[in-house]
Write a protein that binds this DNA or RNA. Structure first.
Length: 270
DNA sequence: ATGGTCGTTGCACGA
């Protein structure tokens, strides 16, 4: 299935939500523009834009029919939401009473009646690295934000790069990843805690088998060797997840000239 | 995974 293949077939489409870590929107703009012109999802969440708000090419997306919101900082992080079905009530960052977070990693907006977050969860780097503690704290802060501000019975989707493999099906070699970030029990427990609040991994609802990934390291020919991880999710509340009719990863977007190391994850809702 | 690349920016670090 190439990006030229119509998906979904047509007519019944009400809402398609996409999440895509683009690993620099500046470097990726030609690929992102091309992909949007071929796929035209109603809502797309981007991560790792790696630019300041002033550099965000809103006009490119406006010309394609999208309203946009961007929360960036500069050379690292940065998240965006593009929507063809309205974009209101934008919240950039945490907007709580907690400590300042220098990293631009989360952005909220309401699109077509759905509360949407674009999230770039910290990588963690290593289990003994302070960044791993930051990662777990960041995930708990997300859970607290959901508890305090959002209603699990509403239609809501937290979309993004979670930098966690929920279980061993999501890792190309669980043996090779023992002792690493992305697969540790505290990270997996943090993800389960978000599920306990009321979120569901929409892709996993529709695809139960292993070996289905959304990220492949640039190094070592990992993509062509099939060495990937599934770490990018559309996490939806039950009322929204129940509307989902399918989900897929566009592996073709990982091929070709100057690809991101992540592929877009797409969920379709009736 | 031993590392193997690509992105930022600068001569190193993050993923």
């Amino acid at each position: 299935m190439g990006p030229q293949t119509p998906w979904p077939i047509d007519s019944a489409t009400v809402l398609r939500i996409v999440t895509w870590n683009v690993n620099s929107l500046k470097a990726r703009l030609p690929r992102v523009e091309q992909w949007l012109s071929e796929n035209g999802p109603e809502v797309i969440c981007l991560q790792e834009t790696k630019m300041k708000d002033a550099a965000f090419p809103a006009e490119v997306f406006t010309a394609m029919g999208y309203e946009t919101a961007h929360h960036g900082q500069g050379q690292w992080n940065g998240v965006a939401i593009l929507s063809k079905v309205g974009l209101t009530d934008v919240v950039a960052g945490w907007d709580d009473d907690g400590p300042e977070d220098a990293d631009a990693r989360i952005l909220w907006a309401t699109c077509g009646g759905v509360r949407v977050a674009s999230a770039y969860v910290p990588n963690g780097r290593a289990l003994d690295d302070p960044h791993y503690t930051y990662k777990l704290g960041w995930l708990e802060r997300l859970r607290q934000t959901l508890l305090r501000r959002e209603d699990p019975s509403s239609e809501l989707a937290v979309c993004g790069d979670f930098n966690i493999c929920p279980d061993d099906r999501d890792v190309w070699s669980p043996e090779a990843w023992v002792g690493n970030t992305h697969v540790s029990e505290p990270e997996r427990e943090a993800l389960r805690s978000l599920e306990a609040w009321g979120l569901e991994d929409v892709y996993r609802r529709h695809h139960k088998e292993g070996g289905l990934y959304s990220f492949w390291d640039y190094r070592g020919g990992d993509f062509h060797q099939g060495r990937g991880l599934r770490i990018d999710f559309i996490m939806a509340t039950a009322s929204l997840a129940d509307r989902s009719v399918d989900a897929r990863v566009d592996r073709d977007a990982r091929k070709g000239e100057k690809p991101s190391d992540h592929a877009p994850v797409i969920a379709q809702f009736d």
